Computed example of a mutant assay.
Amino acid sequence: MNIKMGVAKAGIKPSGDYDILVVKFPLSVYSAVFTQNSLAAAPVLYDRLVCEIQDRILALVINSGNANAATGQKGFENAEKMVEITAECLGLDKSEVMVFSTGVIGVQLPMDKVENGIKQACQNLQDLDLELAARAISTTDTFYKYYETTGMIDGEVFTVKGIAKGAGMIHPNMATMLAYIFTDVKIDKDLLDKATKLVVDRTFNSISVDGCESTNDSFVVVATGESKVEINDSNRVYFTKKLYEVALELAKMIVKDGEGATKLIEINVFQASSKEEAKKVGEAIATSNLFKTAMFGNDPNWGRILSAVGQLHLDIDFSKVKLYLGDFLLYNGEPIEFDRSAAIEYLKNNKEIVINLYLSRGEQEWTFYTCDLGYKYVEINAEYTT
């Protein structure tokens, strides 16, 4: 794919690491999903306007270290200024550029540093380097999140690749995260919007680290149309699966990197009466601090799982419910004798834990991802701005 990027160390991050990323690509169809937090950040407000008037875009500009959220009219003007600087440097119309920010809330952007950083990034464009791009948008991340795959339709190869950031303040809708996926397929915007919605519901809107919904969450899929592969009704399912593969891997990386996390926890809810019910049940377990701290302590305390489900008041008949921790059946309508020591060892020795819950109410299912909650999370967030 003919995608170029530039990065800069503008001095926004206290660490002095890269904090500006500019990405330029051919005029492309795109689809975007944003946070539903009422305190949406200035760049989110700006980008929503772009989405209303523009079906195709040419560039993204992103800063990390400052969220430009809860910054009022000046914050909105600064977001627009970032777009204007980028458009001027790249010779584009400002309506073809989207802007994103991530970092500390409630602090105005240091626009002199931002402007210099954007100009530097635009002057040093190179081929897209996923690792370097992911590094430039990271904040409290402990590793850089990127993934790519290829697919084949009618003998022609296409590519899907993406980057993401996020570790804390992760919860639908959406999770504090930024994620960008690039593909070279030809696709109609309406079809891309449908695929993106399906994918985001099962990935970035099905993860939680701490139950805290961010002000800046943004997920964008860009389709450059450079390959010979054209997505239509006959192959859209296959393409969507590839898009899902990349989004899911990125989403799981975010959960794995949950601030202070030691375990990725996959919660599968089966035999629900509806997908909505299955998702709600999975989310209730994923956001239970009692459950998450038990997982951190390697405690197979299944009562915390079922009580989290019970507080939803869904009139579930728990005499028909089955609950597994890995291969251990913990509950089958009543307490089950299980090898507690072996279950503890399962929790101690595995970085990825699986919970399977069967509700016996229907045929629908959902998978939700979370992580454990430990001491480090409190330390990181207690000292976040100090």
Rank of each mutant, 00 (worst) to 15 (best):
N235H: 04
T196D: 10
E337C: 06
Y324S: 13
K74L: 13
T385E: 13
N66R: 11
T159I: 08
G282M: 07
I380D: 08
V44M: 09
F270K: 15
T159P: 00
E266A: 05
E277A: 07
L323F: 11
V83E: 04
I62P: 03
L191M: 06
A59N: 05
T139L: 10
Q126M: 14
Q123C: 08
I305V: 15
L125I: 03
E213L: 05
L49C: 06
L325T: 01
E363P: 00
A342K: 15
T140D: 13
A247F: 08
Y46Q: 07
L314C: 01
T71F: 03
S234K: 14
L306D: 07
K292P: 14
K13F: 08
E363A: 07
A32R: 10
G297C: 14
L27Y: 08
T262A: 02
D327T: 12
H313N: 07
P335K: 12
I187N: 11
L90I: 08
N2Q: 13
L128M: 14
L264G: 02
N68D: 11
A79L: 02
F239D: 02
Q311M: 06
Y30S: 08
K322N: 13
D112E: 13
Q126I: 14
Y180T: 07
K279L: 12
D190W: 03
N173D: 10
Y244S: 09
T215V: 12
K351W: 00
S218E: 02
L347T: 13
T287N: 15
T35H: 11
P172C: 06
K81M: 04
R202G: 01
Y369F: 15
V199L: 09
D47L: 03
F204Q: 04
N37M: 00
K161W: 03
I62R: 07
N78E: 09
S15M: 12
